[in-house]
């Protein structure tokens, strides 16, 4: 556990009282960590148990780990195609949103035009409107024009829902790019689009990575839009899929848990591999 390289407060570690306090702090953090991990640990250990073992032993570690449940999930249920659907939506929606947001945030941050403040205020207010409010008219419209259960229809909605936050974050970030860079580029004859592409976007890579993380999490994890707008079995997303899946295998807990392990694996693996970006993304995304 001793990986902290950060400077610690110098006054620590002196008297006995301080040591007792330190132990208490560790105690609290250990408890918090246990609670934070408990569902993940339960999910992992149960997925490896046989049905027989789970029936008599719910808490212990798997005595004879079995992989049958994982095989059953992957072969007998459409988990992989659900994941594929979710991935298509993430790529589509995050892609559309990033392009739209970069263009708009550049104009809002770096150009003077009428209605600029109004647009930014409007955009920011939309961050607080609950998605459920937009659903009724969009559902009726989509039913009429045949966009229910289409990727493009869902991508459009997701892109719209994540864009206000993206514009907000990018505008703030673009404003921190030094003005002199723009001026000298203008004098060199670079157009706005070239400046955006060659100067602003490369300089904003950290903010863009943050956005991709936050927005991908949102789209990947969403259930509401997915179950309303993608009702066709072939278009079902992972989150909509597992809420059906869990009902079907209500009594087969180890099998269900194997499904949940597979469903949470992509984000957990990404989180562990790119902690730095996730933590930064989560911290920025929290402002939402």
């Amino acid at each position: 556990m001793n990986v902290a390289r950060e400077p610690r407060f110098p006054a620590l570690g002196g008297s006995k009282a301080v040591k007792a306090g330190d132990a208490l702090k560790h105690g609290v953090l250990l408890l918090a960590s246990f609670l934070a991990l408990a569902p993940t640990l339960f999910m992992l250990s149960t997925a490896l148990k046989s049905d027989e073992q789970y029936a008599v032993d719910k808490l212990g570690l798997p005595t004879a780990p079995v992989l049958d449940h994982f095989r059953a999930v992957l072969l007998d249920s459409p988990f992989l195609s659900w994941m594929m659907n979710s991935l298509i939506l993430v790529v589509g929606a995050v892609g559309v949103s990033i392009i739209v947001s970069c263009l708009a945030a550049y104009a809002i941050a770096r150009m003077e035009f009428k209605g600029r403040q109004l647009l930014l205020a409007l955009n920011t207010s939309l961050m607080a409107v609950p998605p459920i409010v937009m659903i009724v008219p969009l559902f009726v419209l989509y039913s009429r024009i045949g966009l229910i259960s289409t990727y493009q229809g869902a991508i459009l909605i997701y892109a719209g829902l994540i864009t206000p936050f993206s514009v907000y974050l990018l505008t703030t970030f673009f404003r921190t790019v030094p003005k002199e860079l723009f001026e000298s580029a203008h004098i060199d004859g670079a157009g706005d689009f070239r400046i955006l592409l060659k100067i602003v976007i490369p300089l904003s890579a950290p903010a863009l990575v943050t956005l991709v993380v936050v927005n991908s999490l949102y789209v990947w994890n969403d259930l509401l839009i997915a179950i309303i707008f993608l009702q066709d079995d072939a278009k079902r997303t992972l989150m909509a899929g597992i809420s059906v899946f869990q009902g079907r295998y209500n009594n087969q807990v180890p099998l269900t848990m194997a499904g949940m392990v597979i469903a949470s694996a992509p984000m957990l693996i990404l989180y562990i591999s790119f902690q730095k970006y996730f933590i930064r993304g989560l911290m920025a995304g929290a402002v939402k």
């Binding site: 960590s33 991990l37 989180y271």
Partner: peptide
């Protein structure tokens, strides 16, 4: 910054990474 705070931090953020339905 008790010893190991970065590890604790990675762990206590986990609930927010996991999807609500899962």
């Amino acid at each position: 910054r008790v010893a190991g705070w970065k590890v604790y931090r990675v762990i206590v953020f986990v609930p927010f990474v996991l999807a609500i339905p899962i």
